[in-house]
């Protein structure tokens, strides 16, 4: 179970392979990668800055992983989340889940992303032609998280 919050870029493929390599009993690995887009809400996006709450971020992610492990029989979980300056096309987040069979891995990955998006203290600020702007929280993300309750 690895959780990393880091300034440095990462390679999602490497993370996915490592998750499986850790345990030969793993029959299913699901990986989600979130990327910086070059547009949002009608504006071009030239880059992004991700702020977070050091200390709380790691605790919140660990708590989310703990909840996922209580719900599904997971053999591995990994979360990598970038902070600092990012360019369009770069991966922001990787969530990987491993289990004996696919359904637990799919569901746990979905659950972790829904909770991460609504409970982990990260904030995006986009650089647009009109200047920097903070990204607003989405009601659809709140609704997605509520379906697990």
């Amino acid at each position: 179970m690895a959780i990393r919050v880091q300034l440095a870029a990462f390679q999602p493929g490497v993370e996915l392979e490592a998750l499986h390599a850790a345990n030969a009993g793993i029959g299913a690995v699901v990986g989600f990668v979130g990327y910086v887009r070059d547009y949002n809400d009608g504006n071009a996006v030239a880059g992004m800055t991700l702020e977070h709450y050091p200390g709380m971020t790691e605790k919140a992610l660990a708590g989310i992983v703990e909840q996922a492990r209580a719900r599904w029989p997971l053999l591995g979980v990994e979360i990598v989340h970038r902070v600092g300056q990012l360019q369009p096309g770069e991966p922001i987040v990787f969530v990987g889940t491993a289990s004996g069979h696919r359904q637990a891995a799919f569901d746990a990955c979905n659950f972790i992303m829904d909770y991460l998006k609504t409970r982990a203290p990260f904030w995006k600020r986009e650089d647009t032609p009109e200047g920097p702007r903070w990204v607003d929280g989405r009601a659809s993300d709140q609704a997605a998280a509520q379906r697990w309750e």
């Binding site: 991700l50 709450y53 987040v93 998006k117 409970r119 982990a120 990260f122 995006k124 990204v135 929280g137």
Partner: peptide, 10 residues
């Protein structure tokens, strides 16, 4: 204590 707007990671 911390106060902050809705989170937007991921």
């Amino acid at each position: 204590v911390a106060f902050f707007p809705p989170v937007t990671g991921g």
